[in-house]
Write a protein that binds this DNA or RNA. Structure first.
Lengths: 333, 333
DNA sequence: TCGTTCAATATGAACGTTCAAATTCGCTCG
DNA sequence: CGAGCGAATTTGAACGTTCATATTGAACGA
């Protein structure tokens, strides 16, 4: 393997200066077309590729975003997996790379933030799974490090002027759509199986179901609360909760759930006659033919880059912190 | 945010030269203890962290491994996810980072190899999902790029002198153990549900079952072939195949499968009375209480680094290409 | 006392790129 | 015809680190 070509090699071979070669790659419009083509040809011939570290050293940007690879919990671990995929794919288009780092807990994650930014390994971060009073976001803001969260800033009066850019999926809209669709099909006693309150995402999803039910279905059908179930995000717990409700005389036409895990557990008890809708469209619900709400992860990734980089080619500390709330889509099976 | 401290800042503050600071970090033993401690104190005070790109430029190594983030297919996507996790975690200990890249197919992946090595983004690669006549491994060898595969080099007479380092999990041993254990519990008519031959991993797993059955159980029970089923890796197909076999009069005491997907499909048909064992221990089988063969992914990751870096702290082109075949473990539920 | 040796530390250069400023060159216009 | 201008290109320096080599200084033996 011969020594890799450098910008100087290309310059010599094309009879131009280093800077011109650099310009052909980074600012083609300032180079005269004839020159540009000649240099481009030499670049192709020599198979020249700029040395990433040298470029990063000089430009002081790594073109890399860091993201924590969290421990997989349960069935929905696949969501992070797919989000990662979307990020990597979109990043490729924008010439950005994705660097993974491990972290056991938020404090650990903050230590990694420090490590990776001090070492200029990354330009910014993508934070997942935000929660109330998240120490990570405040730390990053204090240190003027660019980042975007997948997950809205919980516990804020007005989400429109959040202190940082965020993308999220409107779980409420998702459950509203699922419920409305079932109502339109004639189902009336549509139950909801979610997580115990308070839970940011969980309460949002419950509200989507409630809104849809209150508007149409429950005229004359009292006891919406009896159809409102909750338990931990666990298959067995879900089965148990649904079975117990039935035992107490609650009848379901259909059931919408806050997660695929819950939907899976519920569908064991309810059988195939009663439609169940999950959330996250994980491979399991796909395999079992259970309907599910799918998050538009490709769009989430795209929006994350958009918020972090804007139209420019580089990650910047956003002055006006925008946000995006995306609509999920129900996959009916 | 003030300008980050550099090695020169530390040197000035500690009253030593740049090189001494560098040595404190990279070769502490050549520095006199008193000096070392003084410099270390200054480093801590200033919060100095070496600039990763500068270091990489100078040392000509990126301390980064590339790994393709493949499209998730079905339930077993979680395996790559967990492997990734193990890699990142082990990498952290060895001061190695993991860079993800997208690729649609092997040729695409090879293009990315070229891109990432030419740009000196990575020192080497971890290749997953090897197959017969894999063009990726030959390309990497031709270009003298360090790599290790998770998956043995299929279609080789003697695996002991493979042309490249590899790690794999002994699926045969896994199914042998699962089958033997069931035999010991008194089950006799233990079926196998796998993939159509030829399939590297699939045939290995089948062989594990066959070996165990041939030794103990089938003395006097003819028709091992009738218990040997195969279909695509799909839940519905699995259910159908098992149902069809039963229809034809095949009776099962128990069933061992080549994947969790197959196990899931089979368990629908077989119900809870007949033990089913899957492969990969994905969250689904965990959630449903189905036994499964678990791959020791943490050990795979550790072995991958070991093969690629040896005892040294850097990735080298291995002269003697070693390998590791690890035993999986059956998780009984 | 004076070389010799070795450990500890210092110095200059280099890694490959892009920035900032300087230079060249062809054109227009008074 | 020469000054002035703008576009195209070149030049020197710098990014922050480590390598290769040089220098210092202390310890030792003759």
């Amino acid at each position: 393997m011969p020594r890799a070509a450098t910008v100087a090699d290309v310059a010599a071979a094309a009879g131009v200066s280093r800077q011109t070669v650099s310009n052909v790659l980074n600012a083609p419009d300032v180079v005269r077309p004839a020159t540009r083509e000649r240099v481009a040809r030499v670049i192709a011939e020599l198979g020249y590729r700029p040395h990433a570290s040298a470029r990063r050293l000089r430009t002081r940007q790594s073109s890399t975003l860091g993201i924590r690879l969290s421990q997989v919990h349960g069935i929905s671990g696949a969501v992070l997996d797919r989000f990662l995929h979307a990020l990597v794919e979109h990043g490729d288009r924008r010439d950005m790379r994705i660097l993974l780092f491990p972290a056991a807990d938020p404090d650990d994650e903050i230590r990694q933030f420090a490590r990776l930014t001090d070492g200029a390994d990354v330009d910014g971060f993508v934070i997942t799974g935000t929660f109330h009073d998240d120490p990570r976001t405040s730390w990053l803001r204090e240190h003027n490090i660019p980042f975007v969260t997948f997950g809205r800033p919980w516990g804020l009066a007005d989400m429109d002027d959040a202190p940082h850019p965020w993308v999220d999926v409107d779980g409420r809209a998702g459950l509203h759509e699922a419920t409305s669709h079932l109502l339109a099909q004639g189902y009336r006693r549509i139950g909801f199986l979610g997580w115990p309150s308070p839970s940011g995402q969980g309460d949002e999803r419950r509200r989507g179901w409630r809104d849809a039910m209150a508007r149409d279905a429950m005229r004359g059908v009292p006891g919406l609360d009896r159809l409102d179930l909750a338990c931990q995000d666990d298959v067995t717990a879900a089965s148990g909760t649904v079975a117990a409700a039935r035992q107490q005389g609650v009848e379901f036409d259909a059931l919408v759930c806050a997660s695929d895990t819950l939907a899976l557990g519920a569908s064991f008890v309810l059988g195939t006659g009663i439609p169940v809708v999950g959330y996250d469209n994980t491979p399991v619900t796909d395999a079992l033919g259970i309907s599910s709400v799918e998050q538009p992860l490709a769009e989430v990734a795209s929006a994350a880059f958009e918020l972090l980089m804007g139209p420019t080619g580089r990650v910047v500390l956003p002055s006006a912190t925008g946000h995006r709330l995306l609509r999920p889509q129900v996959i009916w099976r």
